[in-house]
Amino acid sequence: MKRKFLNQLTPYYFLLPSLILMSVFIYLPVVENFYYSLFRWSAIDTTLNYIGFENYTRIFTDDLVGLSLFNNTLYAVISVIFQVFIALVLAAMLEAHLVRPFFGTLFRNILFLPSVLAISVVGVTWQLIYRPDTGLINQVLRAVGLDTLTRTWLGEEGTAIYSIIAVSQWQWVGYCMILFIVAIQAIPEELFESARIDGANAVQQFFRITVPLVRETTLVMTTITVIGAFKVFDIIWVMTAGGPNHASEVLGNYLYRVAFRNDEMGYAAALATLLFVITFLLTFIQLWLGRTGKEN
């Protein structure tokens, strides 16, 4: 009797090491973070003042949280358009039977290259390209007589966030494209061949064969992109640090600022909880969508 019970316990012993590591480094901090969000405390003077849910009610009245979430959403929508739809179209084009043997590898490498660069390198390079006086973009605009379109791309409230999002697309479209290429290559060639024999043109092949058969990858890419857009921090911090006048603030970035500049650790913890809830929900949706995908 006792032995049987112990036998049933066996798998849990094997799980124990990773369970302990997960609890210590992931679950415990999540709980701790929530605990700390109930206090007012600063990094310098670490006395905890209990204030209940005040930090959470403050989230709803803080304009910068709204602005940050708006920017995150913008980031997500634009990223999905480019890194899912356009990346898929690019992948299909490079895999088309007339392109692939000739330029497939070349373009694949060219488009993939930006994603291997370090974020800080990308950020600084694009800062130079966006420079108002000597930057490439404004110089080209001036050279073709479009002076009215020149902007201080990173320095104006209206353009800063879009300029950064554009850099992110430039960097990641190629990477997503490669993943789609892998998915497309898994589609049996016979399908395309018979479609061609039946007289289907490239566009029809794309919508009738490619799109339905890479559905799984599309789903995964969409959720990864959206979650990534809500967790974004590095590229923004490198390029504008949320400026000018908070115009390119995103949640991750604002959280960092609140914690390490404003010394409001409790409020930062509350913002972190908000970020956790958002990404948790998105992950949940991903898992749920992934499940129905398999049933079909």
């Binding site: 966006y130 108002p132 791309w153 990173l154 320095g155 400026g243």
Partner: peptide
């Protein structure tokens, strides 16, 4: 000021 100070870093202004 030069054009678009918000888009330029201090050290790059100094260089100019």
């Amino acid at each position: 000021f030069n054009e678009g100070p918000n888009g330029i870093s201090h050290s790059s202004a100094r260089s100019s």
